[in-house]
């Protein structure tokens, strides 16, 4: 006996009791195929990432099944023939998970469409940060503009210091903790250099580094 995880999408127009009858039907398929249902979880109606059979939404149901491979093939065939099931995905598992702790994703489909770029707010540029960053992500643009003046003055000072080592991008030990935050943000060498300078500033000013970073981006574009 092997463990399988099966996620299928039922037609969104089925509501209330209809879904339980669909689930009964599917469990019947599983038994017909000679396998056992170990656990069933309803995710409810969610927005699909793309249309399937002209439907924007779908009823997701997650099943855990014990059975042999040929039987799972039979099960997939009955899924294929059933018109109420839009899509299905069966995966072989090494071992059954703890059913209580199975991850159920939130339905973020709606927000993504309406908000457009909302989930990329923290990123800068096409390949910007891979992770949406927390507090700095929503920093209003105004602040950045306001602080620019101060930045310019201080940066001049630092440039004088940095002249000593023209080629090497160097930085103090303590900056590592600060630098970790903008790991993803700068890819270009020029950016990196400016970055280190501003990090050096952070020690003096003991500023929050998030705003500085966005400044750096703007300035590097100017150059």
């Amino acid at each position: 006996m092997r463990n399988y995880e099966c996620l299928f999408i039922a037609n969104p127009n089925i509501e209330g009791d209809g879904m339980s009858s669909v689930v009964e039907k599917v469990t019947a398929y599983v038994k017909e195929a000679g396998a056992e249902v170990a656990n069933i979880q309803h995710w409810g109606k969610r927005r699909l990432a793309y249309q399937i059979e002209k439907q924007q939404y779908g009823n997701y149901v997650l099943m855990y099944i014990n059975g042999e491979a040929p039987k799972i093939v039979d099960l997939q065939r009955s899924f294929e023939l059933d018109s109420t099931i839009l899509a299905y995905l069966t995966i072989r598992l090494d071992e059954m998970p703890e059913f209580d702790k199975v991850f159920i994703p939130e339905d973020d489909g709606e927000e993504d469409r309406r908000g457009g770029r909302s989930r990329y707010e923290g990123s800068r540029g096409k390949y910007g940060s891979s992770a949406p960053t927390g507090p700095e992500g929503k920093a209003p643009v105004k602040d950045v503009v306001l602080e620019e003046d101060e930045e310019d003055d201080v940066e001049m000072d630092v440039d004088v210091d940095a002249d000593a080592d023209v080629d090497l991008v160097e930085i103090e030990d303590e900056d590592e903790s600060v630098a970790e935050n903008d790991d993803d943000t700068e890819e270009l060498k020029s950016d990196a250099k400016i970055d280190t300078e501003s990090d050096a500033l952070d020690d003096d000013n003991s500023d929050d580094d998030s705003d500085d970073d966005s400044d750096d981006d703007i300035e590097s574009e100017k150059k």
């Binding site: 997650l62 991850f103 090497l168 160097e170 930085i171 590592e176 790991d183």
Partner: peptide
């Protein structure tokens, strides 16, 4: 003191082992 700074990226999943790499 100065030292070379390497912008080393760390694998998000190695960093936080509780997050499973799961299609769900």
């Amino acid at each position: 003191r100065f030292k070379m700074q390497y912008k080393r990226k760390i694998c998000k999943f190695c960093e936080n082992k509780e997050v499973p790499v799961d299609y769900k």
